[in-house]
Nucleic acid binder design. Structure first.
Lengths: 335, 335
DNA sequence: CTGTTAGCGCATTCAC
DNA sequence: GTGAATGCGCTAACAG
């Protein structure tokens, strides 16, 4: 592979000049520029990004850390970010943290060591303190789907509590009072807040919260299936079910049919996230919209604005969920 | 951030020694190693990956190029690869090619410029010749979901033709003869081969292929909806529908219900890919399994074996599809 | 086993 | 506007 040195030789200029035409900043006479360009073309010269990063301490790439590479949720984050960054000729470097503290830290350090200009983090296991400390370091970062008051300007998050409230409310307004809940892992902030919102709605409507009608899943479809099975096996009556995400709702729906339940007549279900498949389930799943795409784009814009000094209007930090009514909730049946 | 130089100073050794303990290869006495380790810890030293890559021409990271960051298909590829690579302490750098030639080339060059030790490519627009040429270059790569005879050792692919054959066969064996087809973009190799397999099955069963019962979609759910609408609006009878992927099948199912069709009685449907949601659709979608996860892992193993010289049994190049029977196909109804 | 010496390919002062 | 010199942080011979 050709180096800048060979180009400069072929063009008959110094390597500093070649560097200048590459970076378009300093002034170079049109004639020399053309000579250099021609030489670059002839040698099929490709700048070595690594060397450039080392010398300039920039990399034109931003690091993304997600919990998993798998699944619609994270792919939405990644693609949303990549789309806006790509438009500004920035690249992304992606790592996965697998919701484990050591791996999350590992991932962050990897991204930093690759000299990412900025980081966009979806982290769940690392402590607030760690992140606050990190914010004092030299590498700028934004958090997606997490809110830490001390560094709230770097957080782009959803009002999960309100989302939990909305999903329960939809059921309550349809007359349901016996409502089961399949939760995400409660140690995760979002799962916790969604559940709190759920309880707030219940209280507001004077509905009793029955703790035996609760199952803590892990956000995967399978735990939706498992959850519903367990709930059903108690032989306690419930006419409504809220799941803390659409994946689990989907699993619960499959399992409900296995138990010969007629959906939605026998059981009204609501999900959370509004992943694209929600509207392709049968019955079409009523759910809470998680404007992930916009949020992902917001984090990317934060980076463009903060790190690359692009003039961008204010970046929105807190997003509001919205209930999406479809076909999976019907008024409670009187017998 | 501390550099290797500061560490060597604090530890009272040369910087070469520090480098040695970092890379664990050359022999260092236990005593000096401990001194160095202590110094590293005290300074919270983090090696600069960039500098290391520049000096060693390695990066311990492999580049992945997928068409899109969005969607279950690609997230399966990425996560499958990352899982096995991570276990060997290799990192991944991901770029998206958006199925456009210029962007795919761009992505490949970016990954190369970041000094990836190897590349795993899911490319669709770049020509065979380009790839054959690339294979003569210094950067090793494997292709996933594409077969090029000249470099078949670097290809991990699925027998898509056979998959297309299997999906049609399932319908044919259930007595269906009037079968509509919603295809992927025919310029894409896989879509093309799936369609060929479809026709082979038709011919084998002596079923007539009606070209008005064909719709070329783009693999997205929306084109499944659109496709079914168009097919239905012709007022031609068909009792079976094969979709070239599950996403489109899902869209078609939603649309079928809008048209008051009773599934699967009025229309038997088969998909392709067996993405996780296929079994959560209603009726559960019969489809062709695409062992993407295994294939992704195979590419990663190819890299470990070929590039990092790990001893790994032979990597499988050609994978076979398999029909997964669920509930969306029923014997044709006689009236 | 350990230290010295050169670069890796490029950006960036500083002169001219 | 252009060139020469220096260093980014680290690896890799080569000596000792």
């Amino acid at each position: 592979m050709a180096t800048i040195y060979e180009v400069s030789e072929l063009a008959g200029v110094s390597l500093a000049t070649v560097s200048r035409v590459m970076n378009k900043n300093a002034k170079v006479s049109e004639k020399t520029r053309d000579k250099v360009l021609a030489a670059m073309k002839e040698l099929d010269y490709k700048p070595n990004t690594i060397a450039r990063s080392l010398a300039s301490n920039r990399s034109d790439s931003v690091g993304i850390l997600v919990s998993e590479l798998r699944g619609l949720f994270y792919s939405q984050i990644m693609s949303g970010i990549e789309e806006v960054l790509r438009a500004s000729e920035k690249h992304v470097i992606i790592a996965a943290g697998h919701s484990k503290e050591t791996e999350e830290i590992d991932g962050i350090e990897f991204l930093i060591s690759r000299r990412c200009d900025a980081l966009i983090l979806h982290v769940e296991s690392v402590s607030d303190d760690y992140l606050i400390e990190l914010s004092k370091g030299p590498v700028p970062f934004v958090l997606i789907n997490r809110h830490i008051p001390e560094i709230s300007a770097r957080c782009v998050s959803l009002d999960n509590e309100q989302g939990g409230y909305l999903s329960a409310k939809a059921l309550l307004e349809s007359g349901h009072r016996d409502i089961a809940y399949i939760s995400g892992p409660l140690w995760k902030m979002d799962a916790n807040e969604r559940f709190k919102g759920h309880q707030r709605a219940l209280a507001e409507f004077g509905a009793h919260y029955d703790e035996t009608l609760f199952f803590e899943g892990d956000y995967a479809e399978t735990s939706g299936e498992e959850g519903l099975s367990q709930l059903l096996n108690q032989n306690k009556k419930f006419t409504g079910l809220v799941c803390a995400n659409d994946y689990m709702a989907s699993g619960a729906m499959s399992k409900a049919r296995e138990h010969q339940l007629d959906l939605p007549a026998d059981l009204s279900i609501v999900g959370f996230d509004n992943i694209i498949f929600a509207s392709h389930l049968y019955p079409k799943l009523s759910t809470v919209n998680y404007p992930l795409d916009q949020m992902a784009k917001a984090t990317a814009n934060w980076v463009l604005k903060t790190v690359y000094n692009q003039k961008i209007e204010k970046v929105q930090n807190l997003f509001q969920p919205e209930f999406i009514e479809r076909d999976s909730v019907v008024p409670v049946q009187r017998r």
